[in-house]
């Protein structure tokens, strides 16, 4: 397959030759269409809402009720939504960076080294991801607001700071990223790492110059999943911030601000939601090539 073929070409490069029966063909396209419809309809409906006139959003259907595209500007006038977006982007970027660094080191250790207690330790780590975030809520709140004292040392007060949201998110995103990277790193032949080390790098150098680039699909996937989780996050930020953009409140706080005691501006909310999706969509678009090329080429042969 040519390397420049688009994502859609690759995804739909199903071999429907002349022999396949019409039934198979119709079922295939029918199912594909249905899945697309289900996943894309919410976006379509958001767009219709955003384009509706302010007072008529409740009657918007497959077409907008009235027509008022200014909501995309009004959304920023009513609420400083760009600041909420900035907060979310910073927190998500930070969390992703930390997760990738730590998950790489842990993935290297679990995937490429032998040591006593490796299996139990790995299972313990993975089991953390089985707990819902809500389980930790009271403890975390006390810990991160400076209310826990161990041996006379008080925990830091991180209320209204990006770390208050970022730390728990990093911790909760790590297990899955480690699981993913462990699998990928363990498949890189030992010879490549040995060659890199003899030729002039340290183990860590070999990890970031050879092993991680060769595990690009896993690396990128872990990064994107973490980024999306952190970008969409509301649970911890609702607990750890006051809701004002100066206090590092993220996007979902921003969206809620369109709801006042007297009215809910669904058109502005819809417009803001669509704008909020843009960064993630861009990142996925940029990264899709790595993901797909990695999946199709099986590039880790020695």
């Amino acid at each position: 397959m040519a390397p420049d073929s688009s994502l859609s070409d690759r995804l739909f490069a199903v071999d429907l030759d002349d022999d396949s029966s019409p039934l198979f063909r119709y079922t295939f396209y029918g199912t594909t269409l249905l899945i697309l419809l289900i996943s894309l309809f919410p976006f379509y409906y958001l767009l219709m809402l955003a384009l509706s006139s302010p007072g008529e959003t409740t009657s918007a259907g497959l077409l907008p009720a009235g027509f008022d595209p200014t909501s995309f500007i009004g959304a920023f006038q009513a609420v400083p939504f760009h600041l909420y977006m900035r907060n979310s982007l910073i927190i998500a970027t930070g969390v992703t960076a930390f997760v990738l660094v730590f998950a790489s080191l842990a993935g290297y250790t679990f995937g490429r080294m032998e040591f006593r207690g490796k299996r139990p330790l790995f299972l313990l780590l993975i089991s953390i991801s089985y707990f819902p975030g809500a389980t930790f809520i009271v403890g975390l709140f006390k810990l991160l607001t400076g209310n826990v004292t161990v041996l006379g040392v008080s925990s830091p007060n991180l209320f209204n700071s990006p770390a208050a949201v970022g730390l728990p998110l990093t911790a909760l995103s790590l297990p899955f990223a480690i699981l993913l990277l462990t699998t990928f790193y363990s498949q890189i032949p030992d010879g490549l790492e040995d060659a890199a080390r003899v030729t002039g790098t340290t183990r860590i150098g070999a990890l970031y110059r050879i092993i991680a680039p060769l595990s690009a699909p896993g690396f990128v996937t872990a990064g994107i999943l973490t980024f999306i989780t952190a970008y969409n996050e509301f649970f911890f930020s609702q607990l750890m911030t006051t809701g004002s953009p100066q206090n590092w409140s993220p996007i979902v706080w921003g969206l809620l601000r369109y709801q006042t005691e007297v009215s809910v501006r669904y058109d502005l909310m819809a417009a803001a939601s669509l704008i909020g999706v843009v960064p993630v969509a861009l990142i996925v678009l940029l990264a899709q090539r790595k993901i797909v090329s990695g999946l199709t080429s099986g590039s880790i042969k020695g």
């Binding site: 010879g191 490549l192 040995d194 003899v198 030729t199 590039s299």
Partner: peptide, 20 residues
């Protein structure tokens, strides 16, 4: 000393060229 500081070069059985 670590391998990189020994002034050696090595050729491996599985060739081990960096595929990327």
């Amino acid at each position: 000393k670590p391998p990189k500081d020994r002034d050696i070069a090595m050729v491996f059985q599985n060739i081990a060229l960096f595929p990327h």
